[in-house]
Amino acid sequence: MPQQKLPQLTPIDSRIRIPQHYQRQPLISRLVSRYGVTVNITAAILTATDNHGWFDLQLQGNSEHICNGLLYLQNLGVDLMQLSIPGNVQHNLSFKPFPNPSKEFVPLPIQEQTQPYQGYSSQSYRLRLQICILKDYYQTPIISDLVSCYGVTVNIIGASLLANQENDGWFDLDIWGKPQQLFSSFNYLKTLNLPMWVDESSLHGHLI
């Protein structure tokens, strides 16, 4: 009996621009949990004062799953500024270059307390932290691994990750899940030996 051929894994690079009203939604996390796509963020600019958040994503997975995930983003009104498939680059008509931040990213303290949106269940808890993405980790899908391996929901609430990979980057994260999921996620991040600052007010005794 011939062996069944697995679907081909097709890497796709995509540049997306997320409008401000969706910046508190875990859109990238959903690409992983709903569509089974491995997402590596290779560049990102997201601040509370910007009208749009920018992300360069490297998507890996079944071609159909990737297309469904990108269609989901488009249906929400997220702009797909650029798609790059091996041997072919496509831009949409509203293409704009990736922004060059004029000032250095501001680390913790993280912004004011926010309430979970209604998609989170009453049994979910939040771990809020800031993590430094060392330039040697730019090719590691850290956010994707958190979602796929530990079942948490990760919302990126701030980001500064330059595409040139010459400097370290930062993510401000809200991680939602059950206490054991948060504990496992936290331990995973510690094993990476990346500089990390935790908002202790978000722990509420669940990790200690």
Rank of each mutant, 00 (worst) to 15 (best):
P2D: 14
Q4M: 07
L9Q: 10
I16K: 03
I16F: 05
R17I: 00
R17K: 10
P19A: 00
Y22P: 05
V32W: 11
S33V: 06
R34D: 13
R34E: 12
Y35F: 15
G36A: 01
V37T: 01
T38A: 05
T42F: 02
A43I: 08
A48E: 15
A48M: 00
D50N: 13
H52C: 10
G53W: 01
W54K: 03
L59M: 01
Q60L: 13
N62T: 04
L70F: 06
L70T: 10
L70A: 05
L71H: 12
L71N: 14
Y72H: 10
N75R: 09
L76M: 11
V78D: 13
V78C: 09
V78W: 08
L80D: 13
L83Q: 02
S84H: 15
I85Q: 11
P86D: 08
V89D: 13
H91A: 07
L93S: 14
F95M: 01
F105I: 00
V106N: 05
V106E: 04
P107H: 04
P107D: 03
L108I: 15
Q111N: 09
E112W: 00
E112Y: 06
E112T: 05
G119T: 00
Y120M: 00
S121M: 03
Q123D: 12
L134I: 00
D136G: 00
Y137D: 01
P141G: 04
P141R: 02
I143T: 11
S144I: 01
S148G: 05
C149Y: 09
Y150P: 07
Y150F: 14
N155T: 12
I156P: 10
S160N: 10
L162C: 02
A163K: 12
E166P: 02
D168C: 05
F171K: 03
D174Q: 04
I175V: 15
K178M: 14
Q180F: 11
L182G: 05
L182C: 08
F186D: 15
N187I: 05
Y188T: 08
L189I: 06
L192I: 06
L192H: 06
L192G: 11
P195W: 15
M196H: 03
M196C: 15
V198Q: 13
V198A: 07
H204V: 13
G205A: 09
L207D: 14
I208A: 14
